[in-house]
Design a protein around this nucleic acid. Structure first.
Length: 301
DNA sequence: TACGGGACATTTGTTTGATT
DNA sequence: AATCAAACAAATGTCCCGTA
């Protein structure tokens, strides 16, 4: 039984209880049915369930309670947590969402995107869970040779169909982002590390678009004002570019939004994606660099 | 009475190391 | 280098008892 199977069981238990409270028998039936549809014939005992229940509490901070009069287990209300457990829960939820997408892929036509580097997921998840130092080889974009790394895993994050590991590189004690598809031979060592209490993933990514943070440590997020023309506004309203997105003006012609972000390459690319349907009003520096890029592009046509 | 969990058994998978 | 089994490790199951 691989790690994946083990996560799959947790996933089934959570999915079942998310829908409605259920008795142990109902949960077991649901799991067996799910396994069957994937071509397996797994089952689990009551003892395993009790262990899973505790595991789900410690790992994902989701408590499963028991209602004696109904003879049913139920999921306690989710608490917003910002600690280690919450971080894993976050990762896990994304993982679940991804898996679910896969299982409904036969019925619903989805954009064909296959997440890269998923084969390392379980290994890294295991290290993350147990706070083990990991070793792996990593290739940079510039195609230089792969270098061996040792790092403390902090979180796994998905962005635009790619998985990334946030980890503290022990070579220079710096927190970095590693793309899973450029990583090879990840290995969990026997060595444990202590999680830094002051570190919070959400704060770390607070002003980031996607997963890239500027390398300069003193970089400051900038206030950005964008104007989306015409119908585009509706789309941006329903799918905000970033959590900091605030609507400052809205009429038939345009939608103006304010963002607080680090201006990174990824963000510039995001703006370009919207072509002539967006105008950067602020800051001036960003207006200028977009103008340069677009002028450069113009000469091709 | 039935859940939760400790202790131990069983199963399954992985590592090691000796042997061919 | 390839093979196999013993040793080990991890996951899961069985049994049983305290407790609410």
């Amino acid at each position: 039984m691989s790690h994946t199977d083990y996560y799959f069981r947790h996933q089934c238990i959570l999915r079942k209880l998310q829908k409605a409270p259920a008795s142990l028998e109902e949960i077991q039936d649901y799991y067996e049915l799910e396994c069957e549809t994937h071509g397996y014939a797994f089952s689990f005992s009551k003892r395993t369930f009790i262990r899973d229940k505790n595991e789900i509490l410690s790992m994902f901070k989701r408590e499963i309670g028991y209602n004696k009069s109904l003879n049913k287990y139920y999921l306690e209300e989710e608490e917003i947590q910002d600690d280690f457990g919450g971080r894993i829960a976050d990762t896990y939820n994304t993982y679940l969402a991804l898996n679910m997408m896969e299982s409904i892929a036969d019925f619903v036509h989805l954009e064909k995107r296959r997440p890269q580097g998923m084969e390392h997921f379980s290994e890294l998840m295991q290290a993350l869970k147990g706070k083990f130092i990991i070793k792996f080889e990593y290739e940079k974009y510039d195609n230089s040779d792969a270098t061996a790394r040792r790092a403390e895993p902090l979180a796994l994050k998905e962005f635009e169909s790619r998985w990334y590991l946030l980890a503290k590189d022990l070579k220079d004690n710096t927190i970095k982002i590693f793309a899973l598809d450029r990583m090879s031979y990840p290995e969990t060592t026997k060595q444990r590390f202590k999680a830094d209490k002051n570190f919070n993933v959400n704060t770390y990514f607070e002003h980031c678009f996607g997963i890239v943070r500027p390398s300069e440590t003193n970089a400051k997020p900038e206030e950005i004002i964008l104007s989306f023309k015409g119908n585009k506004g509706k789309y941006i309203k329903s799918l905000p570019l970033h959590i900091s997105q605030q609507i400052i003006k809205e009429d038939e012609k345009e939608l103006q939004v304010k963002l607080l972000l680090f201006i990174t390459h990824d963000f510039v690319m995001e703006i370009l994606k919207h072509g002539d349907e967006v105008e950067v009003l602020q800051p001036q520096q960003l207006r200028k660099s977009l103008k340069t890029i677009l002028k450069g592009a113009e000469q091709y046509y």
